[in-house]
Amino acid sequence: MGVGMETAGTWVERWERQQQRYAVDREERFTVISDVVEHLCAGRARPLLLDLGCGPGSLSARLARRLPDAEIVAVDMDPVLLELGRTHHADAARYVEAVIGEEGWTDALGLCRALDVAVSTTALHYLPAPVLARTYRTLGALLRPGGALVNGDHFPPDVGFCSDLTAHVGRCRAERAGDHGHEDWESWWRAVAAEPELADLFARRERSRPAAGGGGGNRHLSVRRHAELLRRAGFRHVTPVWQVGDSRVLVAVKG
């Protein structure tokens, strides 16, 4: 039995609030990503978008409002978050469960044409660096010429001192905004684990985590290193279009 609309709405709303602790100026970053996608898809009748690590559909929902004619495929490995998205943002996207970067993960997407844009926010940093490089190559193959990856995440500078400085600026910005008054990631997951309507999905999530997790992520990779990997994957133009602290929106356009 699926989760009810009211229950899904409650948990998605709480998710939105706790995520503000981790993404500096989160709503502005969503808006910038939407600006970029709208620009890249101008003149295309039914653009095809891929939301990587979609969670409960936060970015997909915003993109669907901005580009109502777009077809959006939203992929994540977490069955709990996907069910919340399918219920609360049902009309925003087609939701797919798959582990990004695993062998054959794109088969589950059911794509029948080239992507116009792939988007992501604070999701790809979980991939180990070799898996990230492979994922960039995969996305390069899925995108049409002139298509792009638009990624909002934390990208540190090359120099350690500068990295500490940008992180400090981001923390100060978040503290002034008062975002740290919300529940954090761990407390949200502890609370949702006690939700009876999600018990079966949560049990499946717990069973799948050991096989899907691990690897250490790629948070240490600088923005320059990301640009190098993207260019090797066939993205000719790579540039940040927005930054607060070390939170950036990085756009990579396929040659």
Rank of each mutant, 00 (worst) to 15 (best):
A148M: 08
V244I: 10
R14N: 02
R204V: 05
T87N: 03
V131T: 15
S208H: 08
L111P: 04
A74R: 00
A211C: 04
D179W: 14
C112E: 13
V169H: 02
V117I: 14
R225W: 06
E27G: 04
P210H: 03
M77V: 10
N151I: 09
A141G: 15
T138E: 15
Q243K: 10
E206V: 05
M5T: 10
R207H: 09
V24W: 03
R219C: 09
G152Q: 00
R173F: 06
L59F: 03
L40V: 09
G214K: 05
D25C: 11
Q243E: 12
G255W: 12
P196Y: 08
T122I: 12
C41G: 07
D164S: 15
L111Y: 08
G101Q: 07
G110M: 06
E228C: 05
V32P: 01
V159N: 14
L230N: 05
V131L: 13
R94M: 00
D184A: 12
A133N: 13
P240F: 03
A23I: 15
G217C: 10
W189E: 11
D153M: 06
H88V: 01
G160Y: 14
T138W: 10
D164V: 10
R232Q: 15
V249C: 06
G101T: 03
E197P: 02
L50F: 01
H39F: 13
G55K: 01
M5V: 14
A61N: 02
W188D: 00
R232T: 15
S58I: 13
G104R: 08
S247V: 01
L250H: 04
E195I: 08
E206K: 06
G4Q: 09
A177C: 04
V131F: 04
V131Q: 15
A123L: 02
L142F: 12
L115M: 06
G147Q: 08
R207Q: 14
L132P: 03
S222K: 07
R171G: 04
F161S: 13
H220D: 15
A194P: 03
A194V: 02
S34Y: 03
A177M: 12
G55V: 08
D35R: 12
G152L: 05
A203C: 13
A252Y: 00
N218H: 11
L115Y: 06
A114I: 09
L63C: 01
L115C: 07
E16S: 13
M1S: 14
C172T: 14
V12S: 05
L81F: 04
L201E: 11
H180M: 11
V32K: 03
Q19A: 11
E102D: 15
T106H: 12
G4P: 00
A148P: 07
L124Y: 01
A8T: 05
D69K: 14
D78Q: 01
R209D: 13
L82D: 02
F30P: 00
H237C: 10
A74P: 01
A98H: 02
G178D: 10
R29A: 13
Q243D: 00
L40Y: 08
G85L: 02
D116E: 10
C112D: 12
E71V: 13
P128Q: 12
P210T: 02
V119W: 01
M77I: 09
E206H: 01
A108F: 01
G213D: 14
A123T: 04
V223Y: 05
H89I: 02
P240L: 07
A118V: 08
L250Q: 03
W242D: 04
T10L: 12
C41F: 09
Y136I: 11
G140D: 10
L67T: 04
